[in-house]
Amino acid sequence: MNVINRRIYSAVREYQNKYPILAITGPRQSGKTTLLRTLFPDYRYVSLENPDNRDFALKDPNGFLNEYDDQVVFDEVQQAPAIFSYLQTIVDNRSDKMGGFILSGSQNFHLMERITQSLAGRVAIFKLLPLDIKELEASDLLADDPFSQLIHGFYPAMYDRKISSSVFYPNYVQTYVNRDITELMVVKDLRQFQNFLGLCATRAGQLLNLSALANEAGITQPTAKSWLSALESSYITFQLYPFHKNFSKRVVKTPKLYFYDTGLLCHLLKITKRETLLTHPVKGALFENMIVAEFFKQMHHSYQNQSPWFWRDNHGNEVDLLLDQGLSLDIYEIKASKTVLTENFKSLAKFESISTIPIYSKGLVNAGSLNQKRSYGNVISWKDFPEFS
């Protein structure tokens, strides 16, 4: 079994002594259990998915927390919402005790709802997403070719247990995605939801037209919005919102849809071979999805807070990723090509010419392996973006 050192470990260690409660959230199979057992080997581990544990916590929260009162991990803690208010009282009564409770869950909506209601200010919250490129590279597991990597995907189980993506993803959808969605809401027709999920995959890296998505899926727009929210809460998809500060009404204000894992995305699109992807119309969108998702993964794994956006006007000029640094902006174009052309920097130059906020850095992220500094901006290899310390 390959031992992959997750970059988030150091941040969790640091804040263990600064907050009475730590919360680890992220999609199923992202490595949360491994993290918990690695970083907290002396803590008691209690899974609230176990019916006996869950029944104890729900029916007798006082007795449950008298039994598990310190140095304990509560996994899938959203299954027992009754204990959150009791935890608040416990940690408030022993304000000098740090890191006594570790909470973990894979449904972000329910977990964050409980934390917001009862534990605000008492919890350090971490997001463990699928493996990032730097983690794979450090473990000598990263593919040499970006398109092979994005098809294979980033979930740790495939690397730990040497499971092929063709086996992993069908099981993942059936075992986890469908299960989480049906726990979050009532889905009368699971086949219709699966069709909706596939239609979301066809829109990865594109502007999200919720009305058109609902019509094609044969559902109402409120249902489409609800299902999409459930996918986001289960860490399957996320949205990137447009930057429109100090711009006119001619700027697009519709978000773009992305998947956290491109292996799952390729599975849904039935793309299993690199040769197929290289000539596929979605090649550029999938490469963009991988790079944008990589930014989010590394941001959370480094426990940093950035403000990522994209920008697009109604003439089609677009900046794929924009980072608002407050007094300046970093802007990036993403191209699924190894060839660097001057015209690739055209949209970045256009944006810089009309922005009232100074541009600190311009970059072109591509599928090549070289990093170069050019007068138009920096050329950045897919393996080296972004750079978080």
Rank of each mutant, 00 (worst) to 15 (best):
T276I: 13
F56E: 08
F243K: 01
Y258L: 04
D60K: 12
A293C: 03
Y169W: 13
N378V: 06
K97N: 01
I334A: 02
K283T: 01
F126C: 12
P170Q: 08
S337L: 06
P156R: 01
F193N: 10
S307T: 02
S164L: 12
L197V: 01
L321F: 08
T116A: 15
I354S: 05
T34C: 03
N50K: 08
H267G: 12
F351K: 00
E67D: 05
L197C: 00
R122M: 13
Q304G: 09
G326A: 07
K97L: 07
P27S: 08
L87F: 11
T175L: 06
F345M: 01
Y360P: 01
L210S: 12
A349S: 13
G153C: 09
L142Q: 06
T262H: 00
L129Q: 08
H267P: 00
M112I: 10
T34V: 13
E343K: 06
R7P: 04
L208V: 09
I163R: 03
I24F: 03
F287D: 01
S347T: 08
L22P: 13
M290E: 02
N366K: 08
T89K: 13
M290Q: 07
S85K: 15
Q298N: 13
R44D: 10
G326I: 10
D313Q: 05
S106T: 06
I291H: 08
R122W: 11
F385H: 02
L228W: 04
L277Q: 07
I219Q: 08
S328R: 14
E67L: 15
T25E: 11
I236D: 07
W309N: 06
F238L: 05
F147Y: 15
T276L: 11
Q206K: 14
R7I: 11
G63R: 13
A224D: 07
F238W: 00
D180Q: 05
S106K: 10
F196Q: 00
K59L: 06
S10T: 14
A214C: 15
A124D: 07
L131E: 15
G31K: 03
I8W: 02
R7Y: 14
N314Y: 04
F243C: 02
Y376E: 12
Q79C: 06
N378Q: 05
Y332T: 01
V177Y: 11
K350H: 07
H152P: 00
D144M: 07
D145A: 14
V123G: 06
T175D: 14
